[in-house]
C-alpha cells in the first residue's frame, strides 16, 4: 500500500493508503475534512472539487496516491473557523446556496476561476461553472455571487 506525504490545508500529512483510495475518500474519511462532498460517481457533479497544486480538480477522480507530494486545499482552508472569505461572503449575500451540498465545490471552483480571470464576464462565469451542478438555486444567484466575489477579491 502506498505511503503518501502531502500538504493539506497548509499542514503536512503522511499516511498509508490503499491504491484504490480516492483523494475525496482520503480527505473525508482519513482526514475527517467532510466539507468536500460526493454527489455522483461519474465525475459530473463537482461537489468534490478541491485545489490540487493550485488547480481545481474533482477529488473523486484522483487517487490519493497520485496526490503524493502535492498541495491540497479544501473548503475548510478558505477562512478561519467562524469566518468567511470574500467569495464565501458573496455567496451568503446573494443567496447563492440553498441545501449547501454542492456549495463547497462551487466555491472552490469559483475561487480558481477568479484566480485565473479576476474580472470575468457573466458568460465566462457560467461557462466556468460547467463542471459543477447545483439542483437548488437555478444558478442565477451563484453567478451573481461569483461576479461580486470576484470584484471583492480584486479589492
Amino acid at each position: 500500500m502506498p505511503d503518501i506525504t502531502l500538504n493539506v490545508n497548509r499542514q503536512a500529512v503522511s499516511k498509508t493508503v490503499e491504491g484504490r483510495t480516492l483523494l475525496v475518500e482520503f480527505i473525508r474519511e482519513t482526514l475527517g475534512l467532510t466539507g468536500t462532498h460526493m454527489g455522483c460517481d461519474t465525475s459530473q457533479c463537482g461537489a468534490c472539487v478541491v485545489h490540487l497544486d493550485g488547480k481545481p480538480v474533482k477529488s473523486c477522480t484522483v487517487l490519493a496516491a497520485q496526490a503524493d507530494g502535492a498541495e491540497v486545499k479544501t473548503i475548510e482552508s478558505l477562512a478561519p473557523e467562524g469566518e468567511m472569505n470574500p467569495m464565501q461572503r458573496a455567496f451568503h449575500e446573494h443567496h447563492g446556496l440553498q441545501c449547501g451540498f454542492c456549495t463547497p465545490g462551487m466555491v472552490m471552483t469559483a475561487m480558481a476561476l477568479v484566480a485565473e480571470n479576476p474580472d470575468p464576464t457573466e458568460a465566462q462565469v457560467r461557462h466556468g461553472l460547467e463542471g459543477n451542478i447545483c439542483r437548488c438555486t437555478g444558478y442565477q444567484n451563484i453567478v451573481a455571487a461569483v461576479l461580486d466575489g470576484a470584484k471583492a477579491m480584486r479589492g
Binding site: 465525475s43 488547480k55 481545481p56 484522483v62 480558481a112 463542471g131
Partner: peptide, 9 residues
C-alpha cells in the same frame, strides 16, 4: 474538453 476540473487532470 470536459469541464475545467477535467482539463486540469
Amino acid at each position: 474538453i470536459g469541464d475545467p476540473q477535467v482539463r486540469n487532470r
